[in-house]
């Protein structure tokens, strides 16, 4: 594969937006390019930290969804 592998390409790789051929080329490049490997590790760490941020809906909201489902059980079926 003939394309320049830089930090932007690594970013696409981290977010799963590369083709399989591109991913393979980037994975190979990471093995031999220490600077890029360090960049990849740092960005992955940061992404994982972002992944860990979570919120949850209130119990009332969840219950309202469940109530909707239960109360519309018959009317929605087989439409």
């Amino acid at each position: 594969m003939n394309f320049t592998i830089n930090e932007t390409e690594v970013l696409r790789f981290i977010y799963g937006e590369c083709s399989s051929a591109e991913s393979k080329a980037i994975a190979e490049e990471l093995k031999k390019n220490l600077a890029l490997q360090i960049y990849y590790d740092r960005m992955m760490e940061t992404k994982l930290e972002l992944d860990a941020i979570e919120f949850e809906p209130s119990e009332m909201t969840v219950n309202e969804v469940l109530d909707f489902s239960a109360s519309h059980h018959d009317s929605l079926e087989h439409h």
């Binding site: 930290e49 972002l50 860990a52 941020i53 979570e54 919120f55 949850e56 209130s58």
Partner: peptide, 12 residues
């Protein structure tokens, strides 16, 4: 309703 730990809050 937040379930973040302190580190996550800081990152946010």
């Amino acid at each position: 309703q937040l379930i973040l730990n302190q580190t996550q809050k800081t990152v946010r």
